[in-house]
């Protein structure tokens, strides 16, 4: 397991560096001149030259890339002062360190994504298990009709409805807001509840349908019959044997869905006007704030790559036939 993790982390590092190089060179191949963007309205050629020098933009692109990457690892000295590691440079639009802004925004997106995933994994597989256990009964039929509806839902639509009904209409829940979990876990939870529900609802239908059909498949497996032939009770057979077999494909599906999960988290952010990485990325695009955009992309990529490793490791824990090396 340790060797697997070491190898995968190394691979992740290579991928992240590759992505950073590609985006870096792409940005600097743009016709726009970064210093101009940073300089503002009443700009003189002298000011541009000064900015170029201050930000190191007067050097060749590969050298700039090297300084950028070295800055992430070891910090970086600009003429205006020292930027401690991990240094992603300064924002063009507000001149603040990019890393500080990311640290500020990332927990919001992460909270939405992780909480939403937890909700749809638990509720989705739970409903699927129920449908499989009561196959052919009205419960099963109700769930399968509901999942058709659930499949057609979109985040922004559900989001607006949830706000209108749960917050404005019934006053059951607070307006979605982000409070750091370290400061007030309860507020964090109640503030995130609606985003979680809204993000998870589009996945729940899929996961419950998938779990149901996997369970029905697993319950017909030979090894499940063997367990019954040993005298194992229904519950043991259902959970310890059949569900165990259905779990691995669910984890695989989750790995595939990681991208849509982060995408969904960003849409959710927008729906509820939360300030996360997604909003930061979009504003940095519209303001051509290259350092911030670079930083957001790198952090986002790293998050997805790390999540993938976690998923693979989980898969290996579930299925002993998967060899990690």
């Amino acid at each position: 397991m340790l060797r697997f993790l070491a190898r995968r982390l190394l691979g992740a590092l290579v991928i992240t560096v590759l992505i950073s190089a590609i985006t870096f060179f792409l940005f600097f191949a743009l016709p726009a001149e970064p210093a101009l963007m940073s300089c503002g309205k009443n700009c003189t050629p002298d000011a541009v030259a000064l900015i170029n020098k201050n930000l190191g933009l007067d050097q060749p692109v590969p050298v700039q890339y090297w300084h950028y990457m070295a800055g992430i690892v070891a910090g970086r000295d600009f003429t205006v002062g020292h930027c401690p590691a991990p240094c992603f440079g300064y924002s063009f639009s507000n001149q603040q360190p990019v890393w500080g802004t990311i640290v500020d925004r990332f927990p919001t997106t992460l909270s939405i994504a992780l909480g939403g995933a937890a909700v749809f994994l638990v509720v989705g597989t739970g409903l699927g298990l129920l449908a499989a256990a009561f196959r052919g009964t009205w419960i099963d039929k109700l769930f399968s009709s509901l999942s058709l509806v659930g499949n057609a839902l979109q985040i922004y639509f559900v989001g607006v409805v949830a706000l209108a009904v749960l917050v404005s209409g019934l006053h059951w829940m607070d307006n979605p807001a982000y409070h750091p979990i370290t400061e007030d876990p309860v507020k964090w939870f109640t503030g995130m509840l609606i985003p979680w529900l809204v993000l998870s609802i589009i996945f729940i239908a899929n996961y419950s349908r998938m779990t149901r059909s996997l369970m029905i498949e697993q319950l017909a497996e030979d090894h499940v019959r063997t367990a019954r032939a040993k005298g194992m009770g229904r519950r043991t057979v259902f959970f310890r044997y059949a569900f165990r077999g259905a779990l691995a494909p669910v984890v695989t599906l989750f790995g595939i869905d990681l991208g849509s999960l982060f995408g969904g988290a960003i849409i959710t952010e927008f729906t509820f006007s939360l300030h996360g990485l997604g909003r930061l990325a979009v504003s940095s695009v519209s303001e051509t704030d290259l350092p911030t955009l670079m930083g957001v992309m790198l952090v986002g990529c790293t998050a997805i790559v790390v999540a993938n490793i976690v998923v693979d490791a989980t898969y290996a824990l579930i299925d002993p036939r998967v060899r990690l090396a």
Binding site: E221, D222, H223, V224, R225, T226, A227, A229, K230, G231, M232, Y241, R244, G245, I318, D319, P320, R321
Partner: peptide, 18 residues
Amino acid sequence: GNTVAMVFQDSLTALSPY
């Protein structure tokens, strides 16, 4: 499994891989 037990043909599928 107690009074009466059964052995199946294909041991690869009849035993749980997990």
